[in-house]
Design a protein around this nucleic acid. Structure first.
Lengths: 350, 350
DNA sequence: TTGTAAGCGTTATCAT
DNA sequence: ATGATAACGCTTACAA
């Protein structure tokens, strides 16, 4: 490389290395390394001196250098299909809590909005040799992507959805959806519509399917019909819920008295649109969602709540424990969900 | 370090280094380095061969090693007070777009929820020597923190708010707020309440102040009174807007016919609570916000829109350009805003 | 066009 | 308890 041989070329604080500290403290770099990392084999006096010197020299170890030497980057990757949707942003916050507490960095890989060159993530830019472990926020992975991840055998856990052969943390979607639907039925509803999540985009996976299945099973178990014309879909967003309601309500024929939505954002979409069209909630239509979105309480939305932040936090903890040598820490776990009854559900009118 | 001398200790794909590729391709590491990075001085034939070999060996350069050698980490840091609030999550997505396109990584530093040990971010864990540049999403920084950042002289830009001596990208808050208030006045409102952002937490800064100022100036210019009892505050969230409305409406005396909210989330809070209390929007109360939140259209919220994603994308571009050697690329810029009239504002009743 | 080799800032082994 | 020093995997003058 042959740079200038002199230190502190740049005027500032920028380039203080372990050697500078060693020199200033009159010890070897090895001792500085031990001292600053809190390792044993350094006398209290020496350590203190080194810490002082390091302190006012503003020394911080180069992550690249220590990464090279140790093989650890001290950062974990978080792979998400979106960051501005509730589930993901909450999960990211949760992961960050644990990472921050344990002095790791969080490298965010957003798969959304990148069109097709998604694969680049898996080969060059990303993952590979940049991170010590990977947290995947629910989404489908292609078979190829999976293989890729498997090859670089770093700890890996997925939150919020199932990926074959991977540890996952998440609620029991079947049970959660069943709870929501059963709540409607217990209220006396018989004409229940379904607003299910989209099945088609490659960013989704089987959560939508499971929730649909639960809906149908519960309805069937209650000997209630499920009408195809009351089966709408959305992509988990508010606008898609809004559009779905508009479609549903513009159809000729009888109207349902309740609707089960596969996410709170979609549920809010139907509520907003219902209000706009003069359809009263819950008098004319009961609405239940899944998630307990930050806005759900303000909207009065009845929902089955989950805590993506806690799920991601737990997942991250597992990852970090595994890295700390506690092998076997990474394992699947089911997270709790809970029915939260608010003001958007009520017995059907008459 | 004295590890085992043999390569591929772990069975897998994991440790293929540049030397492995060089050996397999029958060239030197220098040539491999040039080849994989697309540098000149490699014959087409050699390059192709190397690329092939690298390809099926699954070679990816170690970021630590190249970071050490070049002094660049190829990752930029994003500092945010929250990730699950609209402005920030959108900004993160925007930054990510540009970073991804230019092959950089995004390291996320969330200041929220970390209680007091916020300072650790600035000293050890973070920033220092881990990132090539820093994108600060609006928030106040302590003087000390600022100094810290200044010392490590990496390119730095703040989005969404002013930080002394730093380049910033954001809308003209004074103009945006003025536009919103003027819209209300143009509609014929005279009794206008203010829901301003919180001023007190250390995570905030002067955006709230500027918006308040604009409100007062515009009102005064229109010879309209601003009543202290119609001045409420919130922390930019939906629940706080909800609470603010409850407080406002439970006060004795006359009610305003319109309210200007310093953010869409707060505006939605008042709308939700108004609906709950039977106060009709816009018949009884016009509501205007700032942001054009993802949900604003569905709610029919009149607002002054801004695009945090584009702001962050631009800021990131500047940062990257600067790193690419185009010095002077980082500079302040004002982002556009636009009044979007929807259904929550109307002339006052009678 | 290609190869040689020094250097990047740590960590960790082994001696002392 | 401390110090030399090799090694980590890459980049980049410089020589060939």
């Amino acid at each position: 490389m042959a740079r200038t041989n002199e230190r502190s070329q740049r005027g500032g604080h920028s380039g203080v290395s372990i050697e500078d500290v060693a020199a200033a403290a009159g010890v070897s770099t090895a001792t500085v390394s031990r001292a600053v990392r809190g390792l044993p084999r350094v006398s209290p006096a020496t350590r203190q001196k080194i810490l002082d010197v390091a302190g006012d020299l503003g020394y911080v170890a180069s992550s690249s250098a220590s990464g090279l030497a140790t093989g650890r980057t001290k950062t974990i990757g978080v792979l998400a299909p979106f960051v501005s949707r509730w589930f993901f942003s909450k999960a990211i916050e949760g992961a960050d809590r644990e990472l921050h507490a344990r002095n790791y960095n969080l490298s965010l890989f957003n798969l959304g909005g990148h069109g097709s060159n998604r694969e680049r993530l898996f080969s060059k830019t990303m993952v590979y040799k940049q991170i010590d472990a990977l947290l995947v926020l629910c989404m489908a992975l292609t078979h190829e992507e999976l293989e890729h991840l498997q090859k670089i055998d770093i700890p890996l856990v997925v939150v919020g959805g199932h990926v074959e052969e991977c540890a996952y943390i998440g609620i029991d979607d079947y049970a959660a959806a069943s709870t929501a639907v059963r709540h409607l039925i217990d209220l006396g509803h018989r004409d229940i519509a379904l607003l299910h999540g989209d099945d088609e985009t490659d960013l989704n996976f089987d959560v939508p399917r499971v929730r649909i299945l639960a809906f149908k099973d519960v309805m069937m178990a209650a000997a209630l019909p499920t009408r195809p014309e009351w089966d709408e879909w959305g992509d988990f967003t508010v606008p898609s819920g809004q559009a779905a309601f508009r479609r549903l309500w513009s159809k000729p024929g009888a109207k349902p008295t309740a609707i089960f939505c596969a996410s709170d954002e979609m549920a809010m979409g139907v509520i907003f649109e219902a209000s706009r069209l003069g359809v009263r909630v819950p008098e004319d239509l009961s609405v239940v969602g899944i998630d307990n979105h930050d806005f759900a309480e303000a909207v009065g939305l009845t929902t089955v709540g989950q805590r993506p932040d806690e799920q991601a936090e737990l997942a991250t903890k597992m990852l970090l424990d595994e890295l700390d040598g506690q092998i076997g820490s990474v394992q699947s776990a089911v997270a709790p969900h809970e029915l939260i009854v608010r003001r958007t559900t009520a017995p059907p009118q008459s």
